[in-house]
Each structure stands twice: as C-alpha cells, then as structure tokens.
Design a protein around this nucleic acid. Sequence first.
DNA 1: CCACAATACGCATTATATTGCATATTAAAT
DNA 2: ATTTAATATGCAATATAATGCGTATTGTGG
Lengths: 68, 68
Amino acid sequence: MDLIAPVGQQIRDRRQFLRITQGDLAEIAGVSLRSLIDIERGKGNPGIHQLMKILDVLGLKIEISNKG
Amino acid sequence: MDLIAPVGQQIRDRRQFLRITQGDLAEIAGVSLRSLIDIERGKGNPGIHQLMKILDVLGLKIEISNKG
DNA sequence: CCACAATACGCATTATATTGCATATTAAAT
DNA sequence: ATTTAATATGCAATATAATGCGTATTGTGG
C-alpha cells in the first residue's frame, strides 16, 4: 500500500537537485526531519498540509488531473 | 489556511458531474460521509490516502508539478 | 582506515484526523 | 406546503499522524 512512494521520490529527486539536506528542507518547510524522511521513503500517510509545506519550499505543487 | 479548498471543489464538481451523492461516493471510496463532506468543504487536512481513495473512484489522480 | 555528516529507524508521547451519532439546514419532488 | 432526500455541523470516541530522542546505518572527504 505504498501509494505515496512516487510522491516521496519526486520530493527527494527535487531536493537532491537543489543540493539541500533533509535537515535543511525540513527546517525551512516547518516539518520534523523525521516526517520528511518518512515521506521521502514512501512511509506513512502524510496530510496534505504537511505535503504542501514541503512542496512549496521545493517550488512544486499538487494538481488534480484525470486518470490516464 | 484553506489550502485544500480547491481540491475539495474539484472533487465536488466531478461528483456532481457524475450525478452521485456524497453518501454513495463515500461508501464506494471507503471513507466516512463525514470525512467526504469536510474534504469537499475544504475543511481539515485529509491524509493523502484518504484523498486518493476518493479521487480513484472519481477517475482522478494527484500529480506533482512545477509551480507557475 | 578514520572522522564527520547525512540518512534512517524504534519507541514513546503528543497532536490531529477520522468516525459515528444526533440533529440541523438546505434542496428537490409531488 | 409537505414530505423526503441530501448536505451540513457539534461533539465525543477512537484511530492515526507528527514529533523528539536515542541510536544505528550509510555516505563522503581527508
């Protein structure tokens, strides 16, 4: 049931592209390092707020679209 | 702090387009009617699983994209 | 190899979402 | 206008996410 794994991967990819650590991203986004780690790893079930705080810092956003 | 209001609105729009009730959608998606109501209204902070269960039934999906 | 930084995980605590129930409000149909 | 369905809200109970701490593992530069 690893529904958010792809989302976590995208977050990680983008973070690494920007060359910032999990610790820094977590602090800037205002979430715990622990939470960010879990999200990147596709663990758990983050709230949409939590997710948006992180995406915001990375210059990303959530979109709803039709399924292929 | 109504971050998910637009998401809720999209869910509602799509549901109404499909002419199903909140009760039916909630049941099919496997979430409580109460939760669906709150999400459509932009209240609270649903988990991504919760959200995906609903989007799935509606033939919608979450995408991560660059911010404009 | 060694030291240091970054990432990861188990566990307990705290914060918050989810749910059900009762009840209210709103909308639709006859 | 009356009845019935649909949508909405307050509240209490339960489930689950978020966090912090300690520690382990992995990665990286000297």
